[in-house]
């Protein structure tokens, strides 16, 4: 959710021969089976990055979700992580069920990537499995007494919000008090999506005035994702990279356009456009 702009922004590889980027689909698929684990890892990323949503790629990446060869010293599964991330980008619902399976993986980052990709795939069938994971941090409808960091709550909450899983409002709400600020913001974002109550959008606006750049960047992404129009000025003014503000404002703009019945631009849309122009 909170990648550094260095990484998101300018690894855009717009040239065809950017370093290392000149694989072909065939090579990437072959590399997924290579003896060289580094090549496998890169190929999984590459297939996602370039949105190679061919069925052979989807099948190969689903298979890579069960990889046992590539392990970190801590027991993590690097290839599974990349495969799970890539499958979210390819938009093929065949991956839903295997990704739900990944929510049980012993590797935190595989679970996190799976939750994020399930959000992108947008299939509500994953909701019960996500709720189960969310409940690890809960005792009834309260946070468990020891702050729990064992689950990727940020990703879980975001996905539940995006999927409009209104049945889990009572389970999401306690996470507004989670000790990790990023988790609080994810909960606020989800609560806004689930209830449309401005109080949660306002909480995110307040967070834009926080001290830490990393957190402000994360909140920009949250506000863009929920399209919260009253945040427009605060987004334009927060201390962060213009690229991230522009992406956030674009979220607001598109939300306005999608939720306006007429084809003329609303006052809200025009306001956002003027702010975006000022940040170019």
């Amino acid at each position: 959710m909170n990648p550094s702009p260095e990484k998101t922004e300018d690894l855009s590889l717009t040239g065809n021969n950017a370093e290392g980027g000149s694989l072909t689909v065939e090579q990437a698929l072959a590399n997924l089976e290579s003896a060289d684990l580094g090549l496998r890892f890169y190929a999984a990323w590459w297939l996602g990055r370039f949105r190679i949503n061919e069925s052979a790629a989807v099948t190969a990446l689903i298979k890579a979700l069960e990889d046992e060869a590539d392990r970190t010293p801590e027991g993590g599964y690097p290839l599974r992580r990349n495969a799970a991330r890539a499958l979210g980008k390819l938009g093929d619902r065949q991956a839903v069920s295997p990704l739900i399976g990944c929510l049980d993986c012993s590797d935190f980052y595989v679970r996190e990537a799976a939750a994020q990709s399930l959000e992108m795939l947008g299939d509500p069938v994953c909701i019960p499995a996500l709720i189960e994971l969310l409940q690890v941090g809960l005792q009834g409808e309260q946070l468990i007494s020891q702050p729990d960091l064992s689950q990727p709550y940020e990703a879980i909450l975001e996905t539940l919000g995006a999927l409009r899983a209104t049945e889990c409002i009572p389970l999401v709400k306690p996470f507004l008090e989670h000790p990790i600020e990023l988790v609080q913001y994810a909960a606020a974002r989800a609560m806004y999506q689930l209830t449309q109550e401005p109080v949660y959008g306002e909480r995110l606006i307040k967070a834009l005035a926080g001290d830490k750049l990393q957190l402000r960047r994360a909140v920009l992404a949250d506000l863009g994702a929920i399209g919260y129009l009253p945040a427009a000025d605060a987004i334009a003014e927060t201390l962060a990279e213009n690229s991230l503000k522009l992406i956030s404002l674009k979220g607001l703009l598109e939300y306005q356009v999608k939720h306006t019945a007429t084809s003329t631009l609303s006052d809200g849309a025009i306001k956002v456009i003027n702010l975006m122009d000022s940040l170019l």
């Binding site: 922004e9 300018d10 855009s12 040239g15 990279e241 690229s243 170019l280």
Partner: peptide, 12 residues
């Protein structure tokens, strides 16, 4: 320019 933020600012 390879950087999209540079191209963006220049286009503007």
């Amino acid at each position: 320019d390879f950087s999209l933020s540079v191209r963006r600012a220049a286009a503007r």
